[in-house]
Nucleic acid binder design. Structure first.
Lengths: 247, 247
DNA sequence: TGTGAGCCTGTACTAAAGGACAGGTGTTAA
DNA sequence: TTAACACCTGTCCTTTAGTACAGGCTCACA
């Protein structure tokens, strides 16, 4: 990472933020860190959150408009938020407009339109994944004018991993607990199907082995992915093996 | 399993074969068991083997024509043998004609044509998988006329698991050893890709995360499956996790 | 100065997976 | 007896995965 683009003052402030992140143990402390990052990326508003894409996100709002946040929560807009999606999928820093390019669907552009109505038009965001599946944190900074580019992304690239550690300490217990302990009960047939998937069999092959239709195999696979909170077969296998569901 | 279709004599012989299977410790003993099974299913010739579909099969021939076996080995015909494919894929008993129906491709029908030239036209076969991927055993019985049906399949359903145990004792050491110990060295990039597959990411998502093209992700995935001797992603994940390649 | 290994990329195609929608049976326990 | 649950099946459609063929660059090592 080439850091020569930054001035000495910038570097001092960035290092300071990182250092204070290590000491951060409370929400107000995190909020004051967000203010400092907000200032150095020249943004007007900031917000952060931790959780997953499916709406189980705990949000710590520093300066996003309250009415927008209310609407965001009421209409469960996080699922169609391209920025959240981008960050929680790729765990990379992005400009808001980059995210819209990657997720060009109608619900996404609509959401960005709604956000504009609340003065949230331009922004930059970053995040880190928390080792397990789609769980991670998002840090987003917004401004009324478009002053974001490579410089802002680079700052977030450097700072966000440390902010992530901080928000994990503060907010993750409440989120992660209820998620991990969930005991999963797979039916006999589902375990059978899963074992064969593990052996690399296709749905059709499994249908031949179990003397059922391919459609039925898909049916079981679908139920398995839902029960395991997986997104596809490979993910399901990994989760099942980690939890020892195939012994 | 309904066994009332069998006569008392049949049942006695089947039970006898099963019992002697448990005592079987040498190739000649196994061959004499094959003869007894051959007789009870009213076949003319028999053969068995252990290994996988990719040609690493050890064959124990009881009474298949020697010239055919030579040709089979020289032309590596096992890969286009619908019966071997059927048994090693589904680990189920089948009539030869069933296998041709399920694998209707040109190479398969061609192989069956070649076999006919050697007097091998009708048959019945069964097999069992050896817990690991596509490794298992095949027991095949042939006749010049078509006298095979439900009765023969049922006999094999009952007998084959025990023959499998016997052939495993006799022939598996030489086969399985060289296979399991194979140390796999994955490149840094390959492990990275594998980790993200484990998280359920699609190729496209991984390409975004690693800043490479989707094509390149496919390239790595392909190399991974070859190195791990897997048939697809799910299989690769299972193998990698079992061997602790992702720690 | 090759040579191999790791890494990267493209086009074009087929096979497989996955999702939406709609429905079926049989068993079991309140 | 109704409700819940496991299990099963179909059609239609879109998205991903996988494969074949063809080529690129860079670095280490002999």
């Amino acid at each position: 990472m080439n850091l020569t683009v930054f001035s000495k003052r910038d570097l001092e402030e960035i290092l300071g933020i990182i250092h204070d992140s290590t000491l951060c143990r409370s929400e107000p402390e995190l909020m004051s860190l967000m203010v400092r990052v907000r200032d150095i990326v020249e943004a007007d508003r900031s917000i952060c959150g931790i959780g997953d894409k499916s709406g189980r996100m705990k949000i710590l709002n520093e300066s996003f408009p309250a009415d927008w946040m209310q609407r965001y929560q009421d209409e469960v807009l996080s699922v169609s938020d391209p920025v959240v999606n981008y960050v929680m999928t790729f765990f990379k820093t992005c400009l808001w407009k980059d995210a819209v390019e990657v997720f060009p669907g109608k619900p996404y552009t609509e959401l960005m339109g709604k956000a504009s109505e609340h003065g949230l038009k331009y922004g930059v965001a970053g995040g880190v994944n928390g080792k397990t599946q789609n769980f991670g944190s998002v840090f987003s900074f917004s401004s009324v004018s478009d002053r974001f580019g490579g410089r802002q992304k680079k700052i977030l690239d450097v700072v966000v991993p440390h902010l992530h550690q901080a928000i994990m300490r503060i907010a993750s217990p409440g989120i992660s607990k209820e998620k991990e302990i969930e005991p999963v009960v797979l039916s006999v047939r589902e375990v059978e199907v899963l074992r064969w998937i593990k052996e690399g069999k296709t749905n059709w092959e499994i249908s031949m082995i179990l003397n059922i239709s391919e459609r039925t195999v898909k049916f079981h696979v679908h139920n398995i992915t839902i029960k395991l909170n997986a997104v596809n077969k490979s993910h399901a296998i990994a989760i099942a093996m980690e939890r020892g569901l195939l012994e």
